[in-house]
Design a protein around this nucleic acid. Structure first.
Length: 778
DNA sequence: GAGCACTGC
């Protein structure tokens, strides 16, 4: 494609020079040698040395009188550490410890993990890589990083300890908790780093962060040289980022013997982690939960929703006080079941003396203030001395890992969840209701035993549990389109993808598809090497097609508009459609309708939204009145700002076609083609479109689209597979643009796709040639 | 004429 080459070159040059000037690799080595000498033989000198050296305002020395002066890095004992923790003054700040601190210290000492602090230190000091297994309630996430901190003393060699989390909220809340435990201010000695927010400072020695954030840092520092110890928490969740980090750290560990790595996981599959990390030592700490009794159905249930409702009602009628958690698969199913259960409970109350019940739905797209309702107390008895009320929370998987609710005593588990699956053959990711794994079932059951002994009702047979459920949910890396991952890996300096030592290597076909797609996008050359465009694309927190579209947009004189569109495509649906107000919502949407498609319609919405904000209007109210999601529009605004900053640092031009220019919208539609030329469908008949080349699927325009079938060629953002196959967020395009903008993919001579498409493209090409000839005539 | 499990950069 070769577009954006000039910009690409500029940015490439800038980056290269900056890495050459302060190569982290070079600096790291000398520093480490120095610090090892100093701290080993004379820690006091190390402190002096550091004081002199802290030129760039960085604070890393030990405060005067700190208990750490008598510590020997990576040789400390639990006894020493405990004594330091019990001192009058904070060894990090020198300030006197607060009253609150000693209170928290007492609770910390009661955690199961505390008993094994010395055992942990022995293991940690004996090895480079350690696998640590701790069940819920063991205190591993808060305590282990602190134990490391007291032994690692990262302030002595200007390094940091990182602890990764799969989720933002966890990174933020755990960092706050640990800052309190250490009696320091969040953002100073202890901080966190997540997308959109870096709460760390020059003093920071312990940093909680999302796994994706560490991965992004690694793209610019392949050695992860800022860290002396990296802790991967919740590794059993096997997020894409965790899997890549594990493989990366395995490599880095060989090059950096000074780097320590701890992989923390829940019990299941700990040996797998151990084996993967060259039989690293494994340390296990018991959790602290209450026993949960498991009940199975004697026969398989035909209709799990119906069985679930029945079970909930039975619990309510006959079991003692305690809240219920029911796991279902999606929004609609949950809302529907909430209504049914509420109705049935009302009946039950009329017929018997049972207590009241509050039924709360819980799923990710529920607005936060409604999610909060799950924490409200259960309703009071209907009359004085009556039977106690209870809460019934009906939730998706979100309550399995992301959210913990205290007070749950009964769990109802039908054994299903929606899971992402990837079909590399047609390159489509979709959601499918599938049986959960044994690990998930155990996790769900565990939710009943957080505050007291509980019960879990599994709506499947014991035989099914034992024989049909798989042990673990397949890791995300085996269920995803890997285009983005492969681009990241290339940027991370992984040369040989085939021999990159992932814990579960994805199917070769999936890998091949990703390489192929990146090659079409000109992010990788024919040898599979990262191109300038690919390097640029990896700078953006976007899928490659979106990144390429954005990077190319200055050539279409509309990068400002494409920034907005890209941001809008990166957030959840901005149109709100309440079940009881569908008609009103659709009418409002029509006000923003652009005849040429959904992308432009969304842009209209965004411009109107910004216009309201500029006029100082109440945008929240405006969104509500127009059936738009204020939350998602604001978050698009946030994303846009981040993307804009990246455009600027990469030297990409921000420009617009004047609004009154007749090409304003055409330029935008052409810019869409630059990234999404592979996601194009051609009309086959009245209703049906067919997607290009090997994808070759019969699809329909999603009913939410503003586009009717008046365009023969359409470009789509997303392929959705539900009851039917749809393409969603669609814009009409001209076939000439495909030949002009993506001649490599739409090369007629080598076309191996549908013959009728080839024919159509051929006549378009002929027409273009004739037109060009006409123009060339004198 | 429909639906969006959940994260993350």
């Amino acid at each position: 494609m070769g577009r954006s080459d000039e910009n690409g070159r500029k940015a490439e040059k800038k980056r290269q020079s900056s890495t050459e000037e302060d190569s982290p690799v070079k600096r790291m080595k000398t520093e480490d040698e120095e610090d090892q000498k100093d701290t080993k033989y004379n820690p006091y000198l190390a402190h002096m040395e550091d004081n002199k050296e802290s030129t760039n305002g960085a604070y890393h020395a030990l405060v005067p009188g700190s208990a750490f002066h008598s510590f020997k890095r990576r040789q400390t004992t639990a006894k020493q550490a405990s004594a330091a923790e019990e001192g009058d003054n904070n060894p990090f700040t020198g300030n006197p410890h607060s009253q609150q601190y000693f209170g928290i210290l007492k609770t910390r000492r009661n955690l199961p993990v505390h008993k094994q602090r010395q055992e942990f230190l022995d293991a940690y000091q004996s090895t480079q890589i350690l696998v640590f297994v701790g069940e819920t309630g063991s205190g591993k996430t808060t305590q282990i990083p602190q134990y490391v901190l007291y032994d690692e003393l990262p302030q002595l060699n200007k390094k940091l300890i990182a602890c990764t989390q799969p989720r933002r909220v966890a990174a933020m809340s755990v960092a706050q908790r640990v800052a309190d435990e250490l009696d320091v201010t969040l953002g100073e000695e202890v901080g966190y780093s997540i997308r959109f927010e870096d709460k760390t400072g020059p003093k920071t020695v312990l940093k909680y962060m999302t796994d994706g954030m560490l991965l992004r840092e690694a793209m610019h520092d392949h050695e992860m040289s800022r860290y002396s110890c990296i802790i991967l928490d919740e590794a059993h969740e096997r997020t894409l980022a965790t899997d890549i980090l594990m493989a990366l750290l395995k490599q880095i560990a060989k090059r950096r013997p000074d780097l320590k790595i701890i992989v923390m996981s829940a019990t299941l599959d700990a040996q797998k982690f151990q084996r993967y990390f060259y039989d690293a030592p494994l340390l296990a700490v018991p959790g602290r939960t209450h026993p949960v009794e498991i009940y199975y159905t004697p026969e398989p249930e035909k209709d799990y929703v119906e069985a679930a409702i029945r079970t909930v009602l039975q619990i309510h009628a006959s079991e003692p006080e305690g809240d219920i958690l029911l796991f279902l698969t999606g929004e609609e199913e949950i809302e529907d079941t909430c209504r049914k259960i509420s109705y049935e409970v009302d009946e039950l109350i009329r017929e018997t003396d049972c207590g009241p019940m509050r039924v709360c739905p819980l799923y990710g797209t529920l607005p936060p203030h409604q999610q909060q309702k799950i924490f409200d107390p259960a309703p009071a008895p209907l009359k004085k001395g009556g039977r106690p009320g209870r809460k019934c929370i009906i939730s998706t998987n979100i309550a399995e890992t992301s959210l913990t609710i205290d007070g749950i005593v009964y769990v109802v588990d039908p054994g299903f969840s929606k899971q992402k699956i990837y079909n590399p053959r047609i390159r489509v990711e979709s959601l499918l209701v599938s049986p959960i794994s044994k690990a998930s079932a155990q996790q769900r059951a565990g939710r009943a035993g957080r505050t007291k002994p509980g019960k879990c009702f599994r709506l499947y047979t014991e035989k099914a549990f034992k024989e049909e459920l798989i042990e673990q949910t397949y890791p995300e890396i085996l269920r995803s389109n890997l285009s983005n991952t492969v681009l990241e890996l290339k940027k991370l300096g992984v040369e040989d993808l085939v021999h990159f030592d992932l814990m579960d290597p994805p199917a070769p076909e999936t890998m091949m598809r990703a390489l192929e797609e990146l090659n079409y996008l000109a992010c990788l050359d024919d040898e599979g090497e990262l191109t300038q465009l690919g390097g640029l694309a990896s700078e953006f927190p976007l899928d490659p097609a979106l990144a390429v579209m954005l990077i190319s947009s200055p050539e279409f004189y509309c990068s400002n508009e494409m920034l907005s569109i890209t941001a809008l495509l990166s957030v959840p649906q901005i149109f709100v459609r309440p079940a009881n107000k569908r008609r009103e919502a659709d009418e409002m949407k029509n006000m923003f309708k652009h005849p040429e498609g959904d992308h432009l319609t969304m842009l209209n919405v965004y411009h109107a939204f910004k216009g309201e904000a500029e006029r100082g209007e109440d945008t929240k109210r405006w969104c509500h009145e127009h059936y738009l999601s204020h939350r998602h529009l604001s978050s698009a605004d946030n994303v846009r700002a981040q993307l804009k900053r990246i455009m600027e640092t990469q030297g990409l031009e921000l420009c617009s076609t004047p609004f009154h220019d007749k090409n304003y919208y055409t330029n935008i539609r052409r810019a869409l083609v630059a990234g999404f030329f592979m996601q194009v469908a051609k009309r086959e008949n009245n209703k049906i479109y067919r997607t290009m080349k090997d994808n070759n699927q019969a699809v329909m325009l999603h009913p939410s689209s503003v586009l009717t079938t008046d365009y023969e060629w359409v470009l789509y953002n997303e392929f959705v597979l539900t009851t039917k196959q749809y393409v969603r967020t669609v814009t009409g395009i001209k076939p000439e643009w495909l030949l002009e903008i993506a001649p490599g993919y739409y090369d007629i001579d080598s076309w191996d796709g549908q013959p009728d498409v080839k024919q159509a493209l051929k006549s378009v090409a002929d027409k273009m040639r004739r037109r060009a000839a006409m123009k060339a005539r004198p």
